[in-house]
Every structure is written in structure tokens, then in C-alpha cells.
């Protein structure tokens, strides 16, 4: 239709008008993206090369000194290790429980699936920072959980869950997983629904039982989406902050301090003056670590899916 009225330069007036409108339409998003996303990303690198308290101009360029200092700080490596412990625990717990839930809730004969899905999804929509505070109370020494365990006779004396380094980390992992399992469950359900019905019917005709169907049909077919889920889960959990800040504040004695909390402590709540340059360098190291891990897992996704899945942006080709 548009090609009917060609003008001298080859582009119809109708089309040129459309192009101009298209540029106007994307302009606001581009401005916001460059101003409020790209600029902070670039500057997050720049700050890391300065000795800077966050006040006054950037004058004291120190090159890589912040980085060399970080690599020798045991407190940094402690936070680095804690982040990996949390990520590993969170990934294993949330992916496996979410898969079990999804397999149960995917059964079309199960009545009330929608209600169950809502219930198990509910924690996802709540605010992590508020959950941290509520849970701090529930798992406090005089909190509900201890009272409950005493009432059913499991323990005689209250356990101080959050003052024990190992228990505090386990609690962080369990609560963090509980909060996000609903999302992972929806991911798995999406994957399960992409498996064609005929596959199951064929398996049934071949006499496969439900366990065999699961083991040899469903799980192998879920592998590609499973790899994507693994990538999303790992990457999102490496930047855990809200829960740690409100539930344990990194305690007891930094036993649960993750990298985001470590960086926040140096940037905004320091023992002495703010060390924004130092915190920025730690932020860059965290960013690069997440980047390398996502490259590795992205490669796994690529391999497992047999290069068949649509790349990002496939929706608008």
C-alpha cells in the first residue's frame, strides 16, 4: 500500500512520515536508557579508579590501587565465599523444589490447581525487605518458631537461629528460596506446557509407567529450559541484598555478609569515612564475576538446547 506513491528519492512520503514518528516514539526510551542506565554503568567503573569519599570532585586518581587492596582483604574474600555459598544453596533448593511443585501442579486431573498455584506463588509478590524483618521476628530467640518447636516437643530450650553462623546461612538460603520458588515454578510449568501432548500419548501406548515417562521423556525434554532456569536463578541470587540486609545484616560476625552487603557497607555505612572508590571497585569485581558466570551458563544453554532456541530479541524479528 505504502509503495504506491513513490517520491523522487525512493522513499514514499507516507513511509518517511512513519519513520519520523517511529524515531519520536523510541526517543524517550533511548534518553532514559542512556541517561539513567548506561551513564551509571560507565561511571561505576570510573569511580573504582579513584580514592574518593563520595563528597567533592573526583581528583585523587589511584589507578588499580583499590583493586590490589581488595584482593588482599580477607573480609572481601569472606563476602565472596558467602555469596557463592548462598548462590549454590539457593540454586539447588529453589530449582529442585520448584520442579517438584511444577510436576505435581501440571497434572490436568488435579482439581484446584489454580488455587494451589496462587498459594505457592504468593511469597513472590511480597516485599523481600519486609519479609526479612518479619522472619527475623519469627526466628528470633523468643520468636514463633522456637515456641512452635517447644509446643510440639521437639526442643526444650530456645535455639538462637540467627546467632549461629551456619544456621543463619541455612535460614537465609531457605527463606530466600521460599520467597522466589514461585517464579521458578512458573518457569518449569511453562517448560512442561511446551511439551506436546502426543509425546505422552505415545509413551502411554508404548506401555511406559508414570515414573518411566518422567525419567525418560519429561526430564530430558525439560533440559533446554532447565539450563535457562539455571542461568536466571544463579545470576539473580548472586546479587542478593534486601534479605541479608534486613534478616541478618551480614551477621553474626560477617558470617552471612554477601558481596552486595559488603559493598553497601563501604559505600554508605562505613566504620570510618565512606570509601566510595573502594566500594566501586568491589562492585566491578562482583559485576565481572556475574558476567563470567553468565557467559559459562549461557554457553551451557546454547549447547543443551541444540542451538534451536530463539535468541534474545527473537520476538520482534
Amino acid at each position: 500500500m505504502a509503495k504506491k506513491i513513490k517520491s523522487s528519492n525512493g522513499i514514499s512520503k507516507y513511509n518517511r512520515n512513519k519513520y519520523i514518528w517511529a524515531y519520536i516514539f523510541i526517543l524517550p526510551q533511548i534518553i532514559v536508557f542512556f541517561g539513567f542506565s548506561l551513564y551509571p554503568i560507565v561511571m561505576s567503573y570510573v569511580y573504582s579508579f579513584y580514592d574518593w569519599s563520595g563528597i567533592g570532585p573526583l581528583t585523587n586518581f589511584v589507578g588499580l590501587k583499590n583493586y590490589t587492596r581488595i584482593l588482599t582483604e580477607s573480609s572481601f574474600w569472606n563476602a565472596f565465599g558467602n555469596t557463592f555459598v548462598y548462590t549454590a544453596g539457593f540454586t539447588v533448593v529453589s530449582i529442585s523444589i520448584a520442579l517438584i511443585l511444577a510436576l505435581v501442579l501440571n497434572n490436568p486431573n488435579l482439581k484446584g490447581r489454580g488455587i494451589y498455584r496462587t498459594v505457592y506463588f504468593l511469597p513472590v509478590v511480597t516485599t523481600m525487605a519486609i519479609i526479612g524483618i518479619v522472619m527475623q521476628n519469627i526466628f528470633g530467640t523468643q520468636g514463633f518458631f522456637n515456641e512452635f518447636l517447644k509446643a510440639i516437643g521437639l526442643i526444650d530450650q530456645s535455639i538462637s537461629w540467627l546467632s549461629n553462623p551456619v544456621l543463619a546461612m541455612i535460614l537465609l538460603i531457605i527463606i530466600g528460596s521460599w520467597k522466589e520458588i514461585g517464579i521458578t515454578m512458573i518457569y518449569w510449568l511453562t517448560g512442561l506446557q511446551m511439551i506436546p501432548r502426543e509425546v505422552y500419548e505415545a509413551a502411554k501406548i508404548d506401555g511406559a509407567g508414570s515414573w518411566q515417562t518422567l525419567r525418560y521423556i519429561t526430564l530430558p525434554l525439560l533440559k533446554p529450559i532447565g539450563a535457562t532456569i539455571l542461568l536466571l536463578t544463579v545470576v539473580s541470587s548472586m546479587r542478593v541484598f534486601d534479605l541479608v540486609k534486613t534478616l541478618t545484616e551480614g551477621g553474626p560476625y560477617f558470617a552471612t555478609e554477601t558481596l552486595e552487603l559488603y559493598i553497601y557497607r563501604f559505600a554508605f555505612a562505613p566504620d570510618g569515612p565512606s570509601q566510595v572508590g573502594f566500594a566501586s571497585a568491589a562492585g566491578v569485581i562482583l559485576g565481572l564475576t556475574v558476567f563470567i558466570i553468565s557467559l559459562i551458563l549461557g554457553w551451557v544453554v546454547y549447547k543443551v538446547s541444540g542451538q534451536k532456541r530463539k535468541p534474545l530479541g527473537g520476538g520482534i524479528k
Binding site: 551509571p40 554503568i41 561505576s44 569511580y47 559493598i263 566501586s280 562492585g283 566491578v284 562482583l286 559485576g287
Partner: peptide
């Protein structure tokens, strides 16, 4: 990869 973008 982004660093600690909240400061900028």
C-alpha cells in the same frame, strides 16, 4: 557487566 551503579 555493571558495577555498583547505585552510587553514580
Amino acid at each position: 557487566p555493571s558495577g555498583y551503579t547505585i552510587i553514580p
